[in-house]
């Protein structure tokens, strides 16, 4: 399997403090990889290491299956990035800001107009960035990251500080990019809802460690509702449910119904009553993605 980004046992220490510990990140081509974690979990540090802004204390980074330490410049030619707050030169216009980067990247001038069009800043191209709103600056930052038509786009908290319409705008923009250009995107956020609506794969990091890395669907599986049954002689009851073709799990004396439509629940209860088990409780357990995320990141263990 070809990984666009693969880190092995990546660690970063600042003095005595460890910001990132043994991180293994794997991003496949064409994915939108949501990099999720609470503030201070080590997301930005990891991203800075991926971009060669910081040197890893230990571990290796492979991007496009090349070692970042050995081929940094060749790798960075194919990477676009926006790290934390957007960087810009306030005394220059939007166009000049991109021109300063374009000169270094060596792409044609027409590309500036293209990226300005993508982020819808064409009309203010000749205004100084000083007077831009945060949303416009953020969009300019995204335009800058797209300038070299990157194969890997790294966006660190791109929706930070934006108003809802700005967030939606950027979200739509990010979603359409891989479809149009086959770009792979790494996007970090501390908001699960944000990632949930864009990402195809998620990596959850807390206290510098990767605690979950899989597709967004597998994460959603955890969030499914379950109906809990507390009955007499629960193991026996569970077996008889299975015997009747009803899908269920048994855990610590509680039966978990994984199919929870009204009809299925009624059928399960009917079966149990019919077979003479006493039913003490029928409860519905609801867990949102947020709950799972909170549980994962605060208890520091995988479900």
């Amino acid at each position: 399997m070809e990984y666009v980004v693969q880190t092995t046992n990546l660690s970063k220490r600042f003095g005595k403090e460890s910001a990132v510990i043994g991180l293994d990140m794997k991003i496949r081509k064409g994915e939108i990889y949501g990099f999720l974690g609470p503030n201070g979990a080590g997301k930005t540090t990891t991203i800075r290491m991926l971009l060669g802004l910081m040197k890893a204390s230990s571990g290796t980074i492979q991007i496009f299956e090349k070692d970042l330490n050995k081929e940094k410049i060749n790798i960075l030619k194919r990477v676009g990035s926006l790290v934390e707050n957007p960087s810009y030169y306030p005394h220059l216009t939007a166009y000049e800001n991109l021109e300063a980067l374009r000169k270094i990247l060596g792409v044609p001038k027409t590309r500036i107009h293209e990226v300005l069009e993508i982020v819808r800043l064409t009309e203010v191209a000749n205004k100084k960035v000083k007077g831009f709103s945060l949303g416009m600056k953020q969009r300019l930052g995204i335009a800058a990251s797209l300038l070299n038509s990157p194969e890997l786009l790294i966006l660190d908290e791109p929706t930070n500080g934006l108003d809802p319409s700005g967030i939606i705008e950027i979200r739509n923009l990010i979603k359409q990019l891989p479809a149009e250009t086959g770009m792979t995107i790494l996007i970090s956020s501390h908001l699960l809802t944000e990632i949930d609506q864009m990402a195809t794969t998620v990596g959850i990091v807390t206290k510098g460690k990767m605690i979950y890395q899989d597709s967004i669907e597998s994460l959603r599986m955890y969030a499914q509702q379950k109906v809990l049954l507390k009955v007499s002689d629960s193991e026996q009851a569970w077996r008889s449910l299975l015997g009747n073709g009803i899908k269920a799990d048994w855990e610590d004396g509680i039966i978990l119904l994984s199919e929870h439509s009204d009809g299925k629940v009624a059928k399960a209860i009917h079966t149990l009553v019919h077979e003479g088990y006493s039913i003490y409780r029928v409860e519905e357990e609801k867990r949102s993605l947020e709950d799972i995320f909170l549980q994962m990141t605060t208890r520091e263990k995988v479900i």
């Binding site: 800075r48 971009l51 060669g52 802004l53 940094k72 410049i73 060749n74 960075l76 030619k77 990477v79 990035s81 790290v83 934390e84 707050n85 957007p86 960087s87 810009y88 030169y89 306030p90 980067l101 270094i104 990247l105 800058a144």
Partner: peptide
Amino acid sequence: NETNAWKQLISLPVS
């Protein structure tokens, strides 16, 4: 330094 553009500059393909 003003908007910490170092990070943007250094993450370009330059040494």
